[in-house]
Simulated assay, not measured.
Amino acid sequence: MLMNTNMEEFMQLTVRQQEIIDAALALIAEQGIQNLTIKNIAAALKITEPAIYRHFDSKFAILDALLDSFDHGSVSVLADSAANQRSPLERIEAFVLDRYRRVKERPYLSKVMFSGELFLFDERLSGKMLAMMHRHKTRISALIEDGQARGEIRNDVSPRSLCRMVFGSLRLLIYQWGMSGYRFDLPAEGLELWQDLRKMLRK
């Protein structure tokens, strides 16, 4: 079973599908992508291989679902903040802090989703990862431009550069957290970092 790649038609994961994805994340983070096999996932979950195939037809389908799920969560938080009529800067804040929260809930994401080279072994997956990153950056850049037009965000720096500051600081802190063995409070330090970054973004 493959996840639909159209975000408007995203199919919610079942409990078992999420368990399979989490087991795959753990295997990649602890043993490397080369050890991601249906056999190893089944062993980690103490279920049979056919039980895995009832939900995903290959390990690539599992990784596909992981990317779709992560993408959907990111898009959803931006949509929710828009529905609540938040300002552009508040919507960027919601996106950033949600990222820290999601990674804290599933620590292995720090070593998989924020280490893009893991997807380079498959051209289709690497292309999908790149497209997702571009989509997120486009949305944040648009919010920055909107904030500049409203006089909320400084306009003496280009939206592209400000966007890179947002994503660069986000990725660096998550990477450091993963490499440290999750030894500090990611959401708390993420909030502190965002508060300092927000001062730099404000006009």
Rank of each mutant, 00 (worst) to 15 (best):
E8F: 07
M165V: 03
F56K: 03
S180E: 09
I47E: 08
L172Q: 08
A82V: 11
L109W: 11
K104Q: 09
Y175S: 09
R183F: 00
F60P: 09
K104F: 05
R160L: 11
F119S: 03
I47W: 13
D64P: 13
R150V: 00
K111P: 08
I153V: 13
F95C: 00
A131T: 14
M200S: 11
F70L: 05
T37M: 06
R154P: 11
R106I: 01
E8N: 13
M113D: 06
K46L: 01
F56P: 14
A79P: 15
I52W: 13
D122Y: 01
K39H: 08
L27H: 05
G178V: 00
W177L: 01
A142S: 14
L201R: 04
K137M: 08
V15T: 12
F119R: 10
A83N: 10
R150Q: 15
A51G: 06
L25G: 05
D80I: 03
R154D: 02
L13P: 15
R135H: 04
I92D: 05
P88G: 00
K59R: 15
Q18T: 08
P187Q: 03
A94K: 04
L170T: 05
R135Y: 02
I41Q: 04
G190I: 03
G32K: 06
I62E: 00
E93S: 12
H136T: 01
L66M: 04
L89Q: 05
Q85T: 05
V112P: 07
R154H: 07
M11A: 12
L201H: 05
K203I: 00
L186R: 06
H134S: 12
Q195E: 14
P107I: 03
S115P: 08
S87Y: 03
A44N: 14
E30R: 11
I140C: 04
A43I: 04
Q34E: 14
L170Y: 07
A65T: 13
P159Q: 07
I28K: 10
L186D: 09
R91D: 03
L170E: 08
I144H: 15
A65I: 05
R139M: 09
A149L: 13
M200W: 01
L89K: 09
R154S: 02
Q148S: 06
T48R: 14
D71N: 15
L25K: 06
A29Y: 10
L25R: 04
S58H: 11
K203M: 02
D80N: 11
E192V: 00
V96M: 04
L125F: 01
L45H: 12
D71V: 03
E30S: 14
D71L: 10
E9F: 10
Q176R: 13
A79S: 14
D98Q: 13
D68F: 05
L89I: 12
P50Y: 09
A142D: 14
G151M: 07
S74F: 04
I21E: 07
A43R: 12
Q17V: 06
Q12G: 11
M1N: 11
M165S: 09
D22H: 12
H55F: 12
D196L: 09
Q34V: 02
K104S: 13
R139Y: 07
N4K: 11
G147F: 08
S126L: 00
E90L: 00
P159D: 02
L130G: 09
D98K: 12
